[in-house]
Design a binder for these strands. Sequence first.
DNA 1: GCTGGCACTCGACTGTAGCGAGTGCCAGTC
DNA 2: GACTGGCACTCGCTACAGTCGAGTGCCAGC
Lengths: 340, 340
Amino acid sequence: MGLDDRKLAVLRAIVEDYVATQEPVGSKALVERHQLGVSPATVRNDMAVLEEEGYIRQPHTSAGRVPTDRGYRLFVDRLSRVKPLSPAERRAIERFLVGAVDLDDVVHRTVRLLAQLTRQVAVVQYPSLARSKVRHLELVPISTTRLMVVMIADTGRVEQRLVELPAPVPADDVTDLRRLVNEKLVGSQLSETPPLVQALVDESAPHLRPAMTTLSTVLLETLVERHEERLALAGQANLTRGGLLDFQGSLRPILEALEEEVVLLKLIGETEPSTTRVLIGDENEFDNLRAASVVSTGYGPGSTIVGGLGVLGPTRMDYPGNIAMVRAVARYVGELLAQN
Amino acid sequence: MGLDDRKLAVLRAIVEDYVATQEPVGSKALVERHQLGVSPATVRNDMAVLEEEGYIRQPHTSAGRVPTDRGYRLFVDRLSRVKPLSPAERRAIERFLVGAVDLDDVVHRTVRLLAQLTRQVAVVQYPSLARSKVRHLELVPISTTRLMVVMIADTGRVEQRLVELPAPVPADDVTDLRRLVNEKLVGSQLSETPPLVQALVDESAPHLRPAMTTLSTVLLETLVERHEERLALAGQANLTRGGLLDFQGSLRPILEALEEEVVLLKLIGETEPSTTRVLIGDENEFDNLRAASVVSTGYGPGSTIVGGLGVLGPTRMDYPGNIAMVRAVARYVGELLAQN
DNA sequence: GCTGGCACTCGACTGTAGCGAGTGCCAGTC
DNA sequence: GACTGGCACTCGCTACAGTCGAGTGCCAGC
């Protein structure tokens, strides 16, 4: 069990070399490229131990070693050194994000930026509605029995929904409805609205009741139950880098998983605030993504978290680099949101 | 040059068989599977002519024949018989589209439906802003110097944009601004707004001028110049069907092209109304998509066209089937939009 | 103008052999 | 006791030769 410093150094060297070359790394190449101060034979002995402990494995008898998921995990937890961003990368981030005109724009720019910087698939979750506060509710009459409800959240998200009213409602009543819902709901956290919405119905004047009832149902549906999470995705083409070696030859399962919003949300949806999360290989719960790793973190204005973002790629990825990028981008986006 | 009926029948048979089996088709197999009424030797003679004319080719000397892009073109133009949808498909379409609650929902359901039905990559363009009319403009004060402009179009699209005002504007003035822009712009086609927006500035009261000027600039920018086309995409995983045979082994260029909105818009953006367009192989203008074909059409409420939708796949695709599906889905979506 | 027959082509597959990267083990050294 | 050099061994990869067979082009005959 005792992994002394040199064995750890060997593991680190294996991970770094394998990530860089994408080829199983042998003992001789290792001592040549790293200053380990010992002979290949010694390294081989260390490798035998590392293999026994499950940190590396041999694709076939006469090949070099490749890290296992467990090996990557150890590497990420204890061996990787933080990789500071290059000035060029820093500049790229800034340049990319200035000039964004609205939330959609911010999210799209961010996801493309992340994909470009990390050369992986990037995912950005829109600010979660549950973590947003209502800034304004607008009711726009489409016809006498139809209303479009537009909700503007403080995070910049705008959601709309068509409401079919049970009976025609005159314009004045719409004005009243608008005033009422805004008075009650503006400023409140969306996850806490259900009782407020209920109260709305109870407190409204009798002639507004039927309309308000329908309206409240829709509000609850849109805002709470069918909690509308949205995502942006970019960089799928990066999956094809590294030939067909990664992902054991088939992109199929990966592409399928990427089409499932639920899956992506589980992967990058933030859990504990402000931690960067790394899921390696089968640590995630989806069979389709056994061969993939995910680096994700939360973002938001200031120290609050309103959504998640991250990248997905082969287990053989540059963890320190990607972690640094994901963090940096999240921080910049947070600052950007704070300005609004 | 004379392609008699039998030669055309041979071409049709080759296309159908190749699409079905994905393997070069030989003369013997052809006469066995189709009632051509002649011997393999005769078919071989016909094939020789078809090859000379550029409709089919041989991957290698001792292999069967494969249609060329030109062959598919002839097939699509003159040989394919319309393939009616199966009742199951018809039902799938209906079931898929009922219950859509807003435009986003409609578009997402549509694109997934198309991908599922055709087993190809599906693309749906949101109703084009240029073809929409303004239904309502809402100005929501974020702070005294910041306004969120929300535009609701008759096609259901909702666009928002943050406006930085040159000086604080009191709430009453915002109300005036709101009234003014709505009076002028509601009901007008977006492509025709520039003069109207200009007039807005000229006609507004002096104390509203500065704010209105900024506002009009943003409106013009958002609505006209940066003409915000949006797209939804689904079914990328379908690209991996047919192993790596299609797309000559690399999905890379295809995936890259699919990330470029501009490319997709050019492909499925409607041109002549109500035609179904088929682009085969290098008929499209993008190098990355030389190995792909696109079937697309316009859709919209009634007989007007507000956007395009379509599918993209290998040149070896079921053209009649895909054409039928694309048309059917477009028609259903049109009906759905007409109801709103 | 169609057909059967036939020689020919050439990719796909199989089996064999040699190469070499990389290993595990062991005896020897510090 | 830890490290090292040496050595036999494994096994994937590549090259090469040989066989098979699907499919063709061509031609003589009906």
